[in-house]
Design a protein around this nucleic acid. Sequence first.
DNA 1: AACGTGCACAACCGCAGTAAA
DNA 2: GTTTACTGCGGTTGTGCACGT
Length: 325
Amino acid sequence: MGHRCCSKQKVKRGLWSPEEDEKLIKHITEHGHGSWSSVPKLAGLQRCGKSCRLRWINYLRPDLKRGSFTAEEEQIIIDVHRILGNRWAQIAKHLPGRTDNEVKNFWNSCIKKKLLSQGLDPKTHNLLSSHKRPNRVHVTSSSQMQEQTFSVFNGSSQLMEIINPPLLTLPAAAPSSPLPIPIPNSHYQNPNVLWPAGNDPNSNESTFFPYGSSMENTLISSLSSTLSGVNMLDEGHCILGANGAIEPYRVPSMEEQLQLQLQQQEKEKTIVCDNQMVMDKIDGEIQEMDSSFDTSNFDLGFLMSGAMCRDNLNSMDDYNFAWNF
DNA sequence: AACGTGCACAACCGCAGTAAA
DNA sequence: GTTTACTGCGGTTGTGCACGT
């Protein structure tokens, strides 16, 4: 059975020999890979282009970091996986010199087992049911009641699991007077945290970040659209207000985002930033996300240094993000 | 020594997205 | 609008090695 991608050719399969590696390296260093489908022919290899590409990316590339994963890398993988799930390529982008394949293998062979041994579900990072205590926090909506686990990142990217906040009842519709919810970690109480109350907290109209910096708005709105692919905080979703209240939220339209961003940029021209490094970092993130709604370059380490609120862990669509600077 | 088992890692397969024809 | 080729990704399988019996 040959490869579909190169059924016309007779291709070799299986492990690469040193001679083949040498041919591929020589060809790519001299000519670049160009079109991968043409590489085998040009390099004199009896392989399909796909196989060449994989061999180069996963093994021969000069910028690859070899050797076992460090504890720090492991923690990054766990943290990012918690947010992105099995998006190995995205996770690998946060680990210079590591490939998606490498990360995936490391996850499946090591981290998965480690999490399981700690009683954590590798998919959700929640405690496994056999390890859960009985009185979990519950959120009641008009249509369903969901089991909830709150998790946050602290400043050092360590994860904390808050298993047992008091029972919480949350109406799905916009509450006329937002109910306070327990804030299990100091991060949630930071007044700079996003998801602020609307101008009129009694309004039944959903709102989107009526104030706050353009950076915040950009990051939040970008995240809400990029990380989920849909409006993860769409109608029926609620957000955590600055005062710890649950409030309705809708994702702003692109036009709204742009308009708001321009307004805020005008305001911020007067603000002196004490921490230029932080600002540079933020600018970089914004530019990247403005130019492309791709999460590939988003620095999750940066994101994770702030506060984070998450509800249902099973889907990216259900994440709520917040942080402070 | 022979065999079985588990593990880590390399490679493959199939699918989806995208751009060009 | 459709087809085709290409690329990238995630899941899965294959391979070689170490270790225990």
